[in-house]
């Protein structure tokens, strides 16, 4: 009898001690609305962050992710999708969260280092093994008879980077003669048999459906395709000039204020800049911005001549208006 009472007492003490701990551990959920090819990156990163947050605070955080064409994802957030954080392909799509939804402050990009872009990437060519069409640079994809796969710039952030990279190349080749650059872009677009809505869809078109001779792809997407399907099937071709893609991230203020998730959402994005976060980015073929990690992985990323949106196009607002808004150069050339 004494033993039973002793056990009961011990159990009661254990329960009493455990109760405050259990009561203090909160279950938190975050929604990260991202662009198309970041699925694998955030799958790894979310697991690492959840572990980190649990160790730091004792709270359980579950991160859900939504992926799609960057422009489309931005519009979904404006239309009411409750994203705690937005990690989109380009700053213009996040600017829209302020411009059209007043969901974030105007100067959102100043809140985190590197204009809120924790990693970068660029645009390269993915061709079939042996490069049967001998594609080496942008001129080659404008040749007649070359089938080019790229998504729709109206919905895809990656496609806009593709377009601007080609435009920058054209401007240099034709000494800033815009008419000739337009003709050059027209020839490339004429070679595009199908426009997917997002980068992942375009990869599916090229890799799984066997369509086209070349895929204009995010560098990380090209590496991933090569890794997943084997270097015996595809090759990466690095053009002579490309564009520095800076996919930015932000907390969606109105949502985190409403849901009470600001602290964890901010920590989530800050974690992207830590050594561990940068390692995960590099392993998923995104170019890290942290010097130490960038140096460690520098062999993985080819060196090439990169232009930036700011220097070449006067920033995303101007680039969007000139090229991708209704009636912009893309419409003028593609719909002609």
């Amino acid at each position: 009898m004494k033993t039973i009472i002793h056990h009961l007492r011990s159990a009661a003490v254990a329960l009493a001690l455990a109760a405050p701990l259990a009561a203090s551990a909160a279950d938190i959920s975050l929604l990260n609305v991202s662009y198309d090819p970041t699925r694998e990156l955030y799958q790894d990163f979310n697991a690492a962050f959840a572990k980190y947050w649990k160790a730091k605070t004792g709270d359980n955080v579950t991160i859900k992710a939504s992926h799609g064409g960057s422009g489309k994802q931005g519009r979904a957030i404006i239309d009411g999708l409750e994203a705690d954080v937005a990690t989109l392909a380009l700053a213009y799509d996040i600017d829209a969260l302020y411009e059209k939804g007043k969901l974030i402050p105007k100067d959102w990009q100043k809140r985190l280092p590197h204009n809120s872009s924790p990693y970068t990437s660029t645009i390269v060519f993915l061709v079939r093994k042996g490069n049967p069409k001998n594609i080496k640079d942008w001129d080659d994809i404008a040749r007649p008879g070359i089938s080019v796969v790229t998504p729709n710039p109206k919905t895809s952030g990656g496609a806009r980077w593709n377009y601007l990279a080609a435009w920058a190349y054209g401007q240099r080749k034709f000494n800033n003669d815009e008419t000739k650059t337009r003709e050059f872009i027209g020839k490339i677009l004429k070679n595009v048999p199908v426009l997917d809505s997002g980068a992942r869809g375009a990869t599916t078109t090229f890799v799984e459906r066997g369509i086209g001779d070349v895929l204009l792809a995010w560098e990380n997407e090209a590496f991933l395709a090569q890794k997943e399907l084997g270097p015996d099937k595809f090759e990466i071709v690095v053009p002579s000039l490309s564009i520095l893609a800076e996919p930015p991230v932000t907390v969606v203020d109105k949502v985190v204020n409403k849901r009470g998730t600001r602290a964890v959402a901010e920590a989530y994005l800050q974690y992207l800049y830590t050594e561990e976060g940068q390692e995960i980015a590099a392993k998923n073929y995104y170019r890290p911005t942290l010097e130490s990690v960038a140096k460690k992985y520098e062999k993985n990323f080819p060196k090439l001549n990169l232009v930036t949106v700011d220097s070449e196009f006067g920033g995303w607002q101007k680039a969007q208006k000139t090229h991708f808004s209704d009636g912009g150069t893309f419409d003028q050339i593609y719909l002609k």
């Binding site: 089938s147 048999p193 199908v194 997917d196 809505s197 869809g201 078109t205 459906r209 066997g210 369509i211």
Partner: peptide
């Protein structure tokens, strides 16, 4: 073969959209 694949893919995309 390429043309057919393109047509099929277009149908696929149209169905997804």
């Amino acid at each position: 073969d390429q043309k057919i694949k393109v047509l099929e893919r277009k149908n696929e995309i149209a169905a997804e959209e």
